[in-house]
Design a protein around this nucleic acid. Structure first.
Lengths: 207, 207
DNA sequence: GTCTATATAACGATAGAC
DNA sequence: GTCTATCGTTATATAGAC
């Protein structure tokens, strides 16, 4: 019983550290993050960070891998399903934009850190995403054969979808200012885009 | 003549420092950049950086403002012209993607630093961009009235165009891996997108 | 203007008591 | 496991000779 309690307590502290590290790293990146700030937010001492994660680099790796895996999963999951192409696109945009609303800083975090250290992208993280491309291409070719949509490369279609959804979150400070919108109006704009992106893509594909 | 020489020499050293700082800041961001590395690349001593720019923060501000102004100009210039909407779109995509090929790291640099310090976005930088929106909206409404294109918000169209062009450069490490492409093939993909983006947008607008 | 040498502060990490 | 105290290093920035 004592061991179980200790076990639980340990897991809990480790989780507190992870959660705190996630917030700080997502906000400031690796270079801008301070171990002291993570410790403060976790409500523990700086030495504890090293006790549980040995080094700043290891702690970061843990946070980064979790973020990358989560984002890739959120992108692949709806695209890998067996739904018809149109439903699949609509479903992807809705679920992915919702995810971005929940974690607006994740794409910027991942992209910045990956540009600075491309070696952090492990092969394993991509295993489930590569086979999705040929599958989508099949669906496209099928619909094209039936004369229902215009021909398009699967690569382009997916890159377009992800770009249209992600970029307005990434570039929020500039875009919000350019559109002359306050934060809540820009949030509304982002959410409204769930339908406007879908319409835009559907129109582009329509024969 | 001596003063002129000194003047030239001074401007040249200052320019060397700026160029070096630009490379380092664009690559590592503010937090990751080291004054020593900038000095090394400029071929001068670390103390000189402070002699010419007083502090790391001031040197960064100079580099950042230059980057932001340049990017905004490259986006606004073709959009603010008097060309017909279709030509304008094609022209924008071509010139903007070319600019991105020349400076692939600028969008990531600007976006990262602006997310961390939104206060760095001065009102002045946006003065020339805000009036562009109503103008494009006019052009859209006109073409819609003539039954040549589908109705669309100018905000959405511009955000879509910038997203489609910029994101594949921003997320290069992930996207290149996902598409299973080597660097040169991904460069070809990016360049080919100049026409595929234009086609995609034209199709989306087509009645 | 340009250098060397150094001040000052902050960071990641560890030692050692409890 | 958790703390305090501190080590060793590195960062920005400055002082002062030339």
């Amino acid at each position: 019983m004592v061991e179980t309690q200790v076990g639980h307590k340990t897991r809990s502290v480790e989780q507190n550290i992870f959660d705190a590290a996630e917030e700080i790293f997502h906000e400031h990146g690796f270079d801008g993050a301070r171990m002291q700030e993570i410790a403060d937010r976790a409500g523990i001492n700086k030495a504890m960070l090293h006790y549980y994660f040995r080094s700043k680099d290891r702690l970061f790796q843990t946070v980064f891998s979790a973020a990358l895996d989560r984002m890739l999963q959120r992108i692949v999951e709806p695209l890998a399903s067996d739904l018809p192409l149109g439903i699949k696109i609509r479903r992807f945009v809705e679920t992915y934009v919702d995810e971005l609303h929940r974690h607006p800083k994740m794409p910027g975090f991942i992209i910045t850190e990956l540009n600075r250290h491309p070696e952090r992208l492990k092969e394993a993280a991509l295993k489930h995403i590569v086979p999705v491309l040929p599958k989508i291409q099949e669906q496209i070719d099928e619909s094209v054969g039936e004369g229902r949509i215009k021909p398009v490369e699967a690569e382009d279609l997916i890159v377009n979808l992800v770009s249209l959804c992600t970029f307005p979150f990434l570039a929020r400070p500039v875009m919000q200012a350019v559109l002359g919108a306050d934060p809540s109006r820009y949030d509304a704009f982002l959410d409204k885009r769930k339908t406007s992106i879908t319409d835009f893509v559907f129109n582009a594909l329509q024969t």
